[in-house]
Design a protein around this nucleic acid. Structure first.
Length: 264
DNA sequence: TACTCATGAGCAA
DNA sequence: TGCTCCTGAGTAG
């Protein structure tokens, strides 16, 4: 389930269970074997996330960069021995009592510090870990206002903001009452400030709960999937606020859900 | 069993 | 804009 909040949770898991240890790195599927050998047996210094990208930093100055893409998945086990071998495991990271299996990622590669810097330089600010906070918000606002592209597309562009995917894009725009078709340069500083701060809040709820809950009254509960959101995957159903049927269309090759009544 | 769809993104034309 | 990478869940028959 790879929007940014999931990746931050994964980084947290790696830091809690594998950081500071010598870990074995393997590739049961074989495709990652040559690169796995570069870090196999080394100590994981720390894991960190920027948007949808996970960086596993090792004590030999190499970093494993992982991007799940649309299919990628992690499976964690509390023991290393006798684990299920089902599916195509691209990469396996384990110590004596914890194991992480990676399947179907878009990217899984071992790179040096220079290459890490290049990736970082390309990425937009991450609402979950804005560092420093005020500057991240300003960069986001500046990048949106510099473009005529519809805001519905800009929110999915990882150069503009890191970690937002199709669910958060739809829900953030609904909560802000902003039409996804409005060009970036038509949005005011106030509108974009509110959008950014809402992204910070929603994605932190996502990190805390593990779910993309976007209805305030459900933040502290564990709602069923069908109840979590305002517009995502609710096409044809009445809007929870105004009753207008939720619309669906394709924007930048992805399904966009929105309410014509609430989002102007 | 076969088919469709998915919370991404790079690349060619 | 369309193709491709790649895996698994859900659904139709």
């Amino acid at each position: 389930m790879p929007e940014g909040h999931t990746v931050h949770r994964t980084a947290r898991e790696f830091n809690a269970r594998l950081a500071g240890r010598n870990i074995t790195v393997d590739s049961p599927q074989g495709r990652f074997l040559a690169e796995a050998n570069l870090i196999d047996g080394h100590t994981l210094v720390r894991a960190r996330a920027i948007g949808k990208q996970l960086f596993l930093e090792f004590d030999n100055a190499l970093t494993c960069r992982i991007h799940l893409g649309i299919y990628g998945k992690w499976r964690f086990e509390n023991h290393a021995g006798d684990v299920a071998r089902d599916g195509q495991v691209r990469a396996r990271f384990y110590s004596e009592d914890f194991l992480a299996d990676l399947r179907g990622p878009t990217v899984c590669e071992v790179i040096d510090r220079r290459a890490v810097k290049q990736v970082e330089a390309r990425l937009g600010p991450d609402p979950i870990n804005p560092d420093p906070k005020a500057k991240a918000q300003a960069i986001f606002i500046a990048r949106v206002q510099a473009s005529k592209t519809p805001i519905g597309q800009l929110l999915m562009n990882q150069d503009v903001v890191s970690g937002i995917g199709n669910v958060y894009r739809a829900e953030l725009l609904f909560r802000a009452g902003i039409s996804p078709h409005r060009p970036g340069n038509s949005l005011t500083v106030d509108e974009l400030t509110a959008l950014w701060l809402d992204a910070v809040e929603l994605m932190r709820v996502g990190v805390r709960t593990g779910f993309m809950i976007t209805r305030d009254e459900l933040f502290t509960r564990r709602p069923a999937k069908a109840d979590r959101n305002f517009v995502y995957k609710r096409e044809g159903l009445p809007c929870r606020v105004c009753g207008t049927n939720i619309s669906i269309e394709i924007m930048a090759t992805r399904k966009l859900y929105w309410c014509v009544g609430c989002q102007t």
